[in-house]
Amino acid sequence: MAYSGKEAPPFFVAHGDQDRLVPVENARRFAEHLRDSSSNPVVYVELPGAEHNFDLYHSIRTEAVVHGIEAFTAWVRANNKHNSNKIF
C-alpha cells in the first residue's frame, strides 16, 4: 500500500488464485486500493490455478503474462501525455 496515492505509477498486477504465500484477497484489495487512489491505470490479472511462483518455469501461462505486460507497457507509453520518454 506504500506505493498507492495520486502519483502512483501505472501498475500491472498479476496474481495466482492458488497462491499460498500471499492470499489472493490481498492482491485484489491492493489493486482496488490503487484504482481508488491513483490517477494512473491499474490492471489486475488473476491467474486461475497459479501459485505464488507461477513464473518460475517457462510456460504458456508465463508467455501470456509477459505479452500482457508488454502490451500494457506499450499502451502506457503511447498514452503518456506528459512526456513520452518519461519512465515511471
Results as ranks from 00 to 15, higher is better:
residue 1 M to A: 05
residue 1 M to Y: 06
residue 2 A to L: 11
residue 2 A to C: 08
residue 3 Y to P: 07
residue 4 S to F: 06
residue 4 S to V: 00
residue 5 G to W: 06
residue 6 K to R: 15
residue 6 K to L: 11
residue 8 A to D: 03
residue 8 A to F: 01
residue 10 P to F: 03
residue 11 F to P: 08
residue 15 H to V: 04
residue 15 H to N: 00
residue 15 H to Q: 04
residue 16 G to M: 02
residue 16 G to H: 01
residue 18 Q to E: 13
residue 19 D to M: 12
residue 19 D to A: 13
residue 20 R to E: 15
residue 23 P to M: 13
residue 25 E to N: 10
residue 25 E to F: 06
residue 26 N to M: 11
residue 27 A to W: 04
residue 28 R to T: 08
residue 29 R to N: 12
residue 29 R to P: 07
residue 29 R to K: 13
residue 30 F to R: 05
residue 30 F to A: 05
residue 32 E to G: 00
residue 33 H to E: 12
residue 34 L to D: 07
residue 34 L to P: 02
residue 38 S to N: 12
residue 45 V to Q: 11
residue 46 E to A: 06
residue 46 E to W: 05
residue 46 E to D: 03
residue 47 L to R: 01
residue 47 L to A: 00
residue 47 L to T: 01
residue 48 P to F: 06
residue 49 G to T: 02
residue 51 E to T: 15
residue 51 E to A: 06
residue 51 E to S: 08
residue 52 H to Y: 05
residue 53 N to H: 09
residue 54 F to Y: 01
residue 54 F to S: 00
residue 54 F to V: 04
residue 55 D to I: 00
residue 56 L to D: 09
residue 57 Y to G: 08
residue 57 Y to L: 14
residue 57 Y to C: 12
residue 57 Y to K: 12
residue 61 R to W: 02
residue 62 T to D: 08
residue 62 T to H: 06
residue 63 E to S: 04
residue 63 E to P: 02
residue 64 A to E: 15
residue 66 V to W: 00
residue 66 V to C: 00
residue 66 V to D: 05
residue 70 E to S: 11
residue 70 E to T: 07
residue 71 A to R: 11
residue 71 A to M: 11
residue 71 A to F: 08
residue 72 F to I: 06
residue 74 A to Y: 09
residue 75 W to D: 05
residue 75 W to R: 12
residue 76 V to L: 09
residue 77 R to Y: 10
residue 78 A to I: 09
residue 80 N to Q: 12
residue 80 N to W: 13
residue 81 K to Y: 12
residue 81 K to S: 15
residue 81 K to G: 09
residue 83 N to E: 07
residue 85 N to C: 08
residue 86 K to A: 13
residue 86 K to I: 05
residue 87 I to L: 12
residue 88 F to T: 07
residue 88 F to I: 03
